[in-house]
């Protein structure tokens, strides 16, 4: 397992509750490996530990292209390591290993209608994908975003959502809302059930809590999308990120090197298996 590379925080942004976005730059002058949307890095906070965190898009909604010399990560403080990472300020140093894993199938999205479905913080790994699609929208054609969250104020990247909704169809759904909320109250599967889709020419990319992805897949199958058209990002315990530690095994798959993004057709036999 490689030693982490030394990075510093160049920008930081508080997002929703306990959630921050960090922009990171290496402190050496070596080139930065290209991170493809859907890949992840291992972030090490001194003395606290290391966690896998997906690459997210640019830190400012107005940036149309990610800077090639930075990595951006959105993370939520839910444990010792993520709490330490969330406390990092601009100028603080940390270790980074990566990028690792197979990302979203960008090549296969070209020329297709793309349905992007995110739940909760699952929007973060999809943000670089959305930015890539929007930067080259003529190449990708029709893009829809369905995004579900608990409450309106718990939806990630509100400025980006507004920005995106000027270019693509954005449908937001929350479990609960106050009377001022003009978006959908209910569940994302309901939006998917009533959405107009072209099942023969659409690819769906999905990221969110596993239970939400299960329901989403069923809703998309009802819409007639074949299993080969569904892509989702999986999560399991991970220590090494390079297929050696064994923790992220899921049936025959290693989430770290075979995923985290999988085509549903390849994992369908395992997806509904419990305690796998």
């Amino acid at each position: 397992m490689n030693t982490p590379r030394l990075f510093t925080v160049t920008d930081r942004r508080d997002e929703i509750t306990a959630t921050v976005t960090l922009e990171l730059q290496p402190l050496d002058d070596q080139p930065l490996p290209v991170a493809r949307p859907g890949q992840f890095n291992m972030l090490y906070s001194f003395g606290a530990g290391e966690v896998p965190i997906s690459l997210s898009g640019s830190i400012n909604a107005s940036d149309s292209v990610r800077s090639a010399d930075r990595y951006t990560h959105t993370l939520r403080a839910v444990g010792k390591t993520t709490e330490a990472l969330a406390r990092l300020q601009v100028g603080d140093q940390l270790g980074v290993r990566g990028p690792f894993g197979r990302g979203w199938p960008m090549d296969q999205l070209a020329g297709k209608k793309v349905v992007v479905i995110a739940g909760g913080l699952g929007l973060a790994p999809l943000k670089p994908l959305l930015e890539a699609l929007l930067a080259d929208i003529t190449h990708y054609g029709h893009v829809q975003l369905f995004y579900g969250g608990k409450r309106p104020e718990e939806l990630l990247y509100p400025e980006s959502l507004i920005h995106w909704s000027e270019k693509i169809e954005v449908q937001l759904s929350v479990d609960q809302a106050g009377p001022d909320w003009r978006g959908h109250v209910g569940v994302i599967t309901q939006l998917l059930a009533s959405a107009e889709m072209d099942p023969d020419n659409t690819l769906a990319v999905i990221c969110g809590p596993e239970i939400m992805m299960r329901f989403t897949i069923q809703a998309l199958q009802k819409q007639g999308l074949p299993d080969t058209a569904l892509y989702l990002s999986m999560e399991r315990n991970m220590h090494c990120a390079v297929g050696h530690c064994g923790h992220c095994q899921w049936g025959p798959h290693f989430i770290c090197k075979d995923g985290p993004v999988f085509c549903y057709a390849d994992i369908a036999p395992w997806f509904f298996q419990r305690e796998l």
């Binding site: 839910v78 993520t82 608990k150 569940v187 309901q190 969110g208 239970i211």
Partner: peptide, 25 residues
Amino acid sequence: IHGARFQLLDVYSADPAPLCRPGES
């Protein structure tokens, strides 16, 4: 009913960013 149960599950509350593994404790 399916939708109501899904809402009741509160799946998005405090979910970590996918792939972030806060198991260090």
